[in-house]
Design a protein around this nucleic acid. Structure first.
Lengths: 355, 355
DNA sequence: TTGTACGCGTTATCAG
DNA sequence: CTGATAACGCGTACAA
């Protein structure tokens, strides 16, 4: 990402930009131009009955002529429309969250609701800022995925504004999630069935909630009479890579895990990177599994075994839940859970010893 | 992405959600609770001088107690602060745009400006909606990357609101971009230097602007005495994959290109997919190069030769340009251009014949 | 159908 | 520091 700095581009013949009209054009202006009252313009723009087709056309024509753009800020302030949804996602670089977003847009799109976006940061672990920004912007309900806050704080925030947590269950808060225990169990059993015994788990950082994936991994290992072996890394690929590197290089050859189950695809990619650096081939020397069935996992050269939680569907359900909450604020808390699907790919195979 | 439908989750003991307070708490309420005037509360929240530290604390304490969240909607309507920036990006799945966004956030973050997001759709080619949404939300300047609109329409939109185009030059509009001709030339020359002669280019759809990458490819080929061979695909990986599949399977063996230069990494990944399906190995049977130096390109198993345009830096420059435009609306149009860097990786190698 | 008047929650000004 | 008052641009009865 280091690139030569740029040359100053020419300003084609000293042109002056077209935009930048200092005074904003308002409905008032449109009304005046069209020779009608401001209320009529408002009515025309909202599409409610009360304007003749001709005058309506005249109004839009006038608006176009003077370059009017409706002010949604003022509009939302004036109207009691309690139907706007805010969407918060942790990380734009993890496509699960983007999938969720797409799902949300699918249903909000149908209802004509606009969605305000808030974006967090994996390194700052500061969803607080993004979340409160959404609240300040008067989102009437917030759909959040990838929340890093401890359960207690999420519950507290949901006290200020209805909140639907996606991808993560939070007691006392509406949520739509996938059965992470089931998914992690599927992965671990898959690895066991292939003949692996030294299976390590690269867990997500503790964020003051449950850790269903890690728990299910550990339980399944113990049930098979094996000792779980966990290590923790951050949320980024590079931090996972560093963790995996030390795991794979330090122990005695016979100690090294033959398979690593990473808590998600992003970190699984980090494991793959580390393996490459160490000259370990996948899956010959090491099996790797992730979680989320990200786009990258499906790429042929990667072909990462993963778990599909159908994030898009989660998004759809979350949007429905959000609207339902808006409709009946005091209905009981809903925790919807979906069943995930294992997607076995070439990154997992029998261990070397079993070959 | 097809997953089993979900089971209805239990509603833990019929709890009722915490949130959903029908009446919104306002500054008025805070003022009353703290025993001060509304003006003072406003002053306290804006951080302007005029409040003693003690009363300020008291105000915030009162606000916390009754769960007050400032209403940024009302605030922006009332304030004459014309400094808000809207950011539009085409596709959340193409990490270049996310890089640009990060760059923008870097500088807006320093200035404390919040950024409103608008997201487009690659399949709909409808940036209009996203853009006008940003205008309606009263963004005072718009930074847009991945614009699909024809030059003329962009120019027209920039008439309504100052606009900075990132990643693409548009005559008459502020822009920050990378020298695509230079980058594409680097790639083509790289392939030529490796000994390739049958080099195909997978171009982006025509969107009514210039096509610097395709042009540079064609020019460089001709200069080497070779016939350019172009085909066009959509913006998605799958459409690129389909196009590449037909290109690679139909022609007679000796006709098949030995290298494909795709217009960006997303489509290059599509080419890689197609090659895998056809049993062609990279780079042994086919060299592949992309553009953008996306995260996926750097992954060891992919190792895609690409061009780094330092999108993050583009984002930074765009934000600066946006603020500059806000400061002097009638300054001449600026077109800043950065020089890209070739990132040769393992996906490109000498052609089979030269081996 | 049209125009009037009030309110949304804040900012901003100005005289106390 | 306070309290009153005028915007901000528009939604929304209500009356004409």
């Amino acid at each position: 990402m280091t690139a030569e700095s740029g040359a100053r581009g020419g300003s084609r013949g000293g042109e002056t930009p077209a935009g930048a009209s200092p005074a904003r054009v308002t409905m008032e202006d449109v009304a005046r131009r069209a020779g009608v009252s401001r209320s009529l313009v408002s009515i025309a723009y909202r599409g409610v009955p009360g304007v003749s087709d001709e005058t309506r056309d005249a109004i839009f024509e006038a608006a176009r002529a003077i370059g009017y753009t409706p002010n949604s800020i003022a509009s939302r302030l004036a109207s009691r429309n309690r139907e706007s949804v805010g969407f918060y996602l942790l990380d734009l670089r993890n496509s699960v969250y983007v999938d969720v977003f797409d799902g949300v847009r699918e249903v909000t799109g149908e209802r004509g609701t606009t969605v305000v976006l808030g974006v967090g940061e994996t390194h700052g672990s500061e969803d607080r800022a993004g979340l409160t920004a959404l609240m300040s912007s008067q989102a009437d309900v917030i759909i959040a995925t990838g929340l890093l806050l401890p359960d207690a704080e999420i519950l507290e925030l949901s006290r200020q504004r209805p909140l639907v947590s996606v991808t993560r269950q939070v007691p006392g808060v509406d949520s739509v999630s996938s059965d992470d225990e089931a998914g992690a169990t599927l992965v671990t059993e898959h690895l066991l069935a292939l003949g692996h015994r030294r299976i390590a788990h690269l867990a997500a950082p503790d964020i003051g909630g449950r850790s269903p994936r890690a728990d299910a991994y550990a339980r399944t290992m113990r049930k098979a009479g094996l000792e779980p072996r966990m290590l923790t890394a951050g949320f980024t690929q590079s931090s996972a890579s560093a963790a995996a590197r030390s795991l794979l290089s330090s122990p005695a050859p016979g100690e090294r895990p033959t398979a690593i189950f990473a808590t998600n695809d992003v970190t699984a990619l980090g494991v793959i990177e580390a393996a490459h650096e160490l000259g370990l081939r996948i899956p010959r020397d090491l099996s790797v599994a992730g979680y989320d069935d990200t786009a990258a996992a499906a790429l042929a050269p990667i072909s990462l075994t993963s778990v599909d939680q159908d994030a898009r569907s989660l998004g759809r359900l979350a949007a429905s839940a959000a609207f339902a909450r808006l409709a009946s604020p005091s209905a009981p808390v809903v925790a919807r859970v979906q069943q995930p699907t294992l997607r076995p790919r070439r990154s997992t195979a029998p261990p070397p010893s079993a070959a």
